[in-house]
């Protein structure tokens, strides 16, 4: 597994998309630091970008890599290597290079500019950590979708739809449900509904660290009471972990049964 992972990472390092992705985040966050003198504003803008782009790019990367390296995978399948090792290795390779890009792209500007602005490092680290989690989650989901669909177009379509679902449709349904049942107490529903979506959960984890959390009023108070302490964080991150592990289990099961 480690060898497959190593080759995947080397393969990805040879593609310029990885550098482009990393460079984009580096330039963006660097520019934001240079142009804005309000660190919390920097984090909010970066958060918007991270929450939209990271899942999207991870999704596309995952699908693309699977279909592109299919022949290589078939070659490996002919060798005496365990199937799970091959696919998990490939997944880990993608996930590693994506997470590494994020950590480097957002993290380096922090190291460079942290002396200039009075930034609270904890909030920024939260941004990086959620970014990494989102990369891991969405590349796993997209890898699984690609594995499920033999047809490239269908695979692409399905994984883009999954991204669309979590980024937009989920929130739309959420909002409709909230307005429809507005006569009832909804805090607990809001809490569970937002834990159910990794993007929403990451967004709330970051916002709770920022000043604007005060705008969220009673619901926000409930959230920060539940998630503000160590146990809450533990729950939030175990939910995020679950979002990685469930697709991974899927990958293992599908790859074992799949007829190539």
């Amino acid at each position: 597994m480690r060898k497959v992972m190593k080759y995947t990472v080397i393969d990805l390092l040879r593609s310029r998309w990885t550098y482009f992705y990393c460079g984009f985040f580096f330039i963006l966050s660097g520019l934001l630091f240079l142009l804005s003198n309000d660190p919390s504003q920097v984090i909010i803008t970066l958060m918007n970008v991270v929450l939209i782009l990271v899942p999207l790019i991870s999704t596309i990367f995952g699908v693309m890599y699977y279909y592109n390296s299919r022949e290589f995978a078939e070659l490996l399948l002919a060798q005496p290597i365990k199937r799970t090792d091959i696919f998990l290795g490939q997944y880990l390779g993608i996930a590693c290079s994506l997470s590494f890009s994020i950590a480097l792209g957002i993290g380096l500007p922090l190291l460079i500019f942290s002396s200039i602005s009075d930034l609270s490092i904890g909030n920024y680290l939260m941004l990086i950590v959620t970014g990494i989690f989102l990369s891991l989650i969405f590349s796993a989901i997209s890898f699984l979708t690609a594995l499920l669909f033999e047809n490239k177009l269908k695979g692409f379509g399905a994984s883009i739809f999954i991204w669309l679902f979590f980024a937009i449709i989920y929130d739309a349904l959420f909002l409709i449900a909230l307005s429809f049942f507005s006569d009832y107490p909804l805090e607990n529903f809001a809490l569970f509904a937002s834990i159910g979506n990794p993007i929403d959960l990451s967004r709330i984890l970051i916002i709770l660290k920022l000043d604007i959390s005060a705008l969220m009023g009673y619901t926000g108070a409930l959230f920060s009471k539940l998630m503000g302490n160590f146990n809450g964080m533990l729950v939030a991150f175990s939910v995020l972990m679950a979002w990685i592990i469930i697709p991974l289990v899927g990958i293992v099961r599908v790859s074992l049964k799949k007829d190539f």
């Binding site: 937009i168 909002l175 909230l178 507005s182 529903f189 937002s194 993007i199 604007i212």
Partner: peptide, 20 residues
Amino acid sequence: FIVFKTPEAMVLLRSLFVEL
């Protein structure tokens, strides 16, 4: 306007859908 009616909707603050 939505938040005025359902304050709980505030959890969607700064989500992509809301911006849209």
